[in-house]
Amino acid sequence: MRRASVGLKMIMAASGGLLVAFLFVHMLGNLKIFVGAEAFDHYAHWLRTIGNPVLPNEWYLWIQRAVLTVAVVAHIWSAAVLTIRARKARPVRYAHRPKVRGSYAARTMRWGGVIVLLFIIWHILDLTTRTVNPVSDTTQAYAAVTQDFAPSRWWVTAFYVLAMVLIGFHLRHGLWSALQTLGVSNARRQRALKAAALVVSVVISGGFLIVPLGVTFGLVG
């Protein structure tokens, strides 16, 4: 049997919700950089020791990575299946078709999502594996961030800024859409939920943005 469209959307909503929760915590952790080099490196080290002594070093981190990978795969898979169905649902296009009047965020969910995925791949190569980062020593978190976004590497900062703005748009429509898909929204709550989605996406993308911008413009390091 074909999977129900509403069921696929629920998978997309739930996996997206998990990813947003991760983003929020990730964003809060990043702000430690404003406290200082020692505090930031200590925080980075602490992440590897979560669960000690029950879990050996880095085990918690690997469990979290596995869960997030499953969420990302489920999110993209359900989006891909629904996108293919949507394309098939209108085989003959309109000769005269004004732009979709829904928000810019709603219109760019699919291609925006693809760009966000490309960003995540770059981001892991940059600040997790350090493949494309000037600092290869993975215990040096503060140095890696400050040298990555140094003014001479302005294009890295520019790419991060673009990606964060796109994630902000993706979350703005995605969060509200997820609440609608999970049946939480209704006529009375709709405005409030849309406003809440906007606030959360501005806080998350803004919280992420101030780190690379802070480094590039000399507020950090």
Binding site: R2, S5, L82, R85, A89, G102, S177
Partner: peptide
């Protein structure tokens, strides 16, 4: 879904 309609993306069109 069987009829070949697409899924909703809450664009409000």
């Amino acid at each position: 879904d069987e009829e070949g309609f697409g899924g909703c993306t809450n664009t409000g069109e």
